[in-house]
Structures are given as C-alpha cells and as structure tokens.
Amino acid sequence: MIEIDIAKRQGDFHLNIQAALPFQGTFGLIGPSGSGKSSLFSMLAGHSAPDAGHIRIAGRTLFDAHRRIDVPPARRGIGLVFQDGLLFPHMTVRRNLTYGAGPGAQTLFDELVDTLRLAPLLNRRPARLSGGERQRVAIGRALMAQPQFLLLDEPVSALDPGLRADVLTLLQALHRRTGTPMIYISHAPEEIRQLANTVVTLKDGAIADISRNPHPYPLGAPAPARDMLATG
C-alpha cells in the first residue's frame, strides 16, 4: 500500500493530501502548475518535511510527524529522475550508472544498458549526450541503485516530441522487465495515459480525483488503436 496523509503550509499555499492505494504498477500524478506536484515530490523524496501526518510506502514509514520519523533521502530507497537528468558532468556515462550500484550489480547493469540502448554511450561525458540520451542514462542510474520505487519528476518535459515518445516507450519496457513501481509526475495527460495504471489528479494542493487506467497504451500500437484504448 501507499499511504499518504500529509499537510503542509507554504505561505498562502496549503497542501493537504490523503490517499491509500495499492502500491503496484505506475502511478501518474497530474495537475496544473501550482497544484502541489513539486511539493509532494519533494516530501516523498525527503527534501522537505510535511508539517503534519505520515508517509508509508509498502509498509515502510518514511515520515511520521507524530512519531518523529523522517528517513533521510539517502535511506529512502527512492530512485529519483529529474526533469533535466542531473547527471554528474565530470563522470562518464558508465560511472554515472554505477554511482549508486551495490555489489554484484553487473547483471542489472548489462540488462539496463541493453534495454536503454546505452552501450555506445558508456564512455561519453554527459555534455556529449542528447537530451533523450541523458534522460535514458538518468533512468538507468536511478534503477542501478535498486530502489524500492522510481519517482520521476516530469522526466520528458524538456524533450521534443519524438524523443519524448522514445523515453516513455523505454520506461514501459523497463517496467515490464524490472517490475519496479513508479510514481510519474507530469502536467501532460498524454504521458500519464501512456504509462499510468492509476491516475491521481491534484488541484489546489489536494487530490481532486483518483482514477484507474487499466489499459495504458500498449507498446508500438498504431495511433488510432492507442486513442481508442485511451478513451475506452
């Protein structure tokens, strides 16, 4: 289960979120600017603390104001993927990928390099990568740390449409291969429809709607079929 019951006040903005959902598949977190997506991301990641409440994911308490539990970011077991990748500029792709890897991660490394098509990039520095390549490396780097789940903050919003579709397709393939649950934050409905089984809509700092999306777009389906699935 993913159990969130948090409140946070930031100036005039009030965030008040309560949800208890089965934790599997991909969660899409959608909402306009100022709806509270970034605040929720930051509290899930442990970069800021709610004023009150708790966050429990898969039975593990990450935050509990009452019990004074606030697990530091490094021990939350959350793989973060940021909008602009945030690769370490002074390291090669290989060193970026292995930065958070535990011992014996060679099989996972090979699998991710294969799925994310990173083999030709391994010895390059981030400055020599395109936007899409950087995001592929960022996703691989987060997964190499074998997180409990992935938290992706608008990971394709800075990419052009072709690259966007490519990265989203790879995310679907990765999810099928590794089974790592994902929380995908975006303001773009088409991205959420493509990836998420559960769609949580935020508005003015609160959950406005939770809906199921039993049929995310299948991989490689032609556009009309995908549209039918999305609306059906």
Binding site: R75, L80, G100, A145
Partner: peptide, 10 residues
Amino acid sequence: LETAARSLGA
C-alpha cells in the same frame, strides 16, 4: 547534483 547523489544512497 548533491541531492541526486544523496538519492543514490551516497
């Protein structure tokens, strides 16, 4: 970048 490293368990 330090935040990213922290999230990787460093």
